[in-house]
């Protein structure tokens, strides 16, 4: 079998390649500058696309590589990846499975798992899908010996113009690899209250993360720290949820955590159904007590 993996982030190709490489030849496509991240994972060849990536020109570039040559095309899920997956779906007329977090090849078919009903259920399907979008971080990358050759390819000029670009302040944090996460929700009340949470983050040698409203609506934290169905899927050893009510959208992002601790004023908050230890109370009283207990 021949597989193609696309991601504008080279590191997202590695896990999928690791999962696929024993079943056939795996090719990768990424953006120039990203290719070096995925050359030690047993790929047969990596294409690096030169130019400004937009949905339309990436789709054209993939067509030039000739998508009909491949048995299956895997796309790492992202805003760009989903746009491209839709375009491919329209051109090759195949079933597309989206947002898979696990899959197994079953002869001619593929068995996939993804969240449904907003994260309340897991939908397991079997199909002949040729295009699958995969949630980043679903498979652990493992290096192999040897180095993958790179082929450069030009991106055409997109019909979408980039008029302005505003780089964001990035802390360079990687909440997906943190062993302990302290995660905040609306319940902390205001951005300044983060100062009162930081002693706990330091005491557990963890990282700070947050819910969708905290990261996107109120912007108390940057988006790279957002946990949830639409954010990062995290699997820390300990996940400490402070003032997070536990909407299913959020639960779907932290379900893989080993131990979940929740602090919330509301005894009926749904997060208490999804935690190992829950404390009903004011988080601003609980946090300092917890910090001093941990220091003893």
């Amino acid at each position: 079998m021949k597989f193609l993996i696309f991601s504008e982030d080279g590191s997202n190709i590695c896990g999928i390649a690791t999962k696929l490489r024993d079943n056939g030849e795996v090719y990768g496509v990424t953006i120039e500058g990203e290719e070096s991240k995925c050359l030690q994972y047993g790929l047969k060849e990596v294409y690096a696309l030169k130019g400004r990536p937009m949905g339309d020109n990436c789709f054209k570039a993939l067509n030039k590589i000739d998508l009909t040559n491949f048995d299956r095309i895997f796309i790492s899920s992202s805003p760009l990846g989903r746009d491209i997956a839709g375009m491919i779906a329209s051109s090759i007329r195949s079933i597309v499975i989206t947002e898979a977090f696990d899959f197994h090849l079953e002869g001619e078919n593929i068995r996939t798992k993804r969240f449904f009903f907003g994260g309340k259920t897991i939908l397991e399907e079997e199909s002949s899908a040729k295009v699958i979008t995969v949630q980043p971080g679903s498979f652990e990358p493992e290096k192999v010996d040897g180095n993958t050759p790179v082929t450069m390819a030009d991106l055409e000029v997109s019909s979408i113009t980039l008029d302005q670009e505003v780089e964001k302040e990035r802390s360079g944090t990687d909440i997906e690899s943190a062993p302990i996460l302290v995660s905040i929700g609306r319940g902390i009340g205001k951005k300044e209250a983060i100062d009162q949470i930081m002693p706990l983050v330091e005491a557990v040698h963890g990282e700070l993360s947050g819910s969708r409203p905290v990261c996107l609506d109120y912007k108390w934290l940057t988006e790279e720290r957002q946990v949830g169905l639409s954010g990062k899927k995290v699997k820390p050893r300990v996940y400490i949820a402070l003032g997070i009510s536990g909407q299913i959208q959020h639960i779907a992002g932290m379900r893989g955590s080993k131990t979940v601790i929740a602090v919330n004023k509301d005894k009926d908050a749904p997060i208490f159904q999804e935690c190992d230890y829950g404390i009903v109370g004011d988080l601003f009283q609980v946090v300092p007590k917890l910090v001093s207990a941990l220091k003893q």
């Binding site: 068995r111 897991i122 939908l123 208490f272 009903v280 009283q285 609980v286 007590k289």
Partner: peptide
């Protein structure tokens, strides 16, 4: 696609809830 199953993921959480803050901490 053929639906193999569509069910809620099993939650094996301990769900130990403390209303006594000090005990919980």
């Amino acid at each position: 696609p053929k639906i193999v199953s569509n069910i809620a993921p099993k939650s094996d959480r301990k769900r130990q809830l403390f209303e006594d803050m000090d005990k919980g901490v």
